[in-house]
């Protein structure tokens, strides 16, 4: 089941958006593996590195919409860190596009769906069945 896309989804918004999407029975690529975290800001960069190192084709970090973080500024921190991390990847000569962030509210299942398929398409060329 390669390629594999890891989604670190915050349990307050992005994981809820995934549930919202599930209620609409929207289908995601089989390689997409969601992992629930308590906050997008709690995702250590070393964890993302590990994910890429162990064979993930891409890492998607999903958090609450800007300014709506359950922990006040977790998603803002995550956004800053991911930006810096992408620059680091670029400096190392690695493709920075393998890291992406998406900020969705709990009811925005369709936006998350679009974001995941968009990312998946860029990684693998396989487009959404819809």
């Amino acid at each position: 089941m390669r390629p594999r896309l890891i989604g670190f989804l915050c349990e307050w918004c992005a994981a809820k958006a995934l549930e919202n999407m599930a209620h609409k029975r929207l289908r995601l690529p089989d390689g997409f593996m969601p992992l629930r975290v308590n906050c997008s800001g709690a995702v250590e960069l070393s964890l993302i590195t590990q994910a890429l190192y162990e064979g993930a084709s891409g890492v998607l970090v999903g958090g609450c919409p800007k300014g709506q973080c359950h922990y006040r500024e977790g998603n803002t921190r995550a956004a800053i860190r991911l930006r810096a991390y992408r620059r680091l990847l670029e400096a190392l000569g690695l493709p920075p596009d393998r890291i992406r962030a998406v900020w969705v509210g709990s009811g925005e299942g369709e936006r998350l769906y679009q974001a995941i398929w968009q990312f998946w398409k860029e990684l693998t060329g396989e487009a959404s069945p819809l």
Binding site: W12, C64, P65, Q68, H70, G107, E108
Partner: peptide, 9 residues
Amino acid sequence: ALLGLCPGE
């Protein structure tokens, strides 16, 4: 934002 409630779309 204050209460940490997630609004829908």
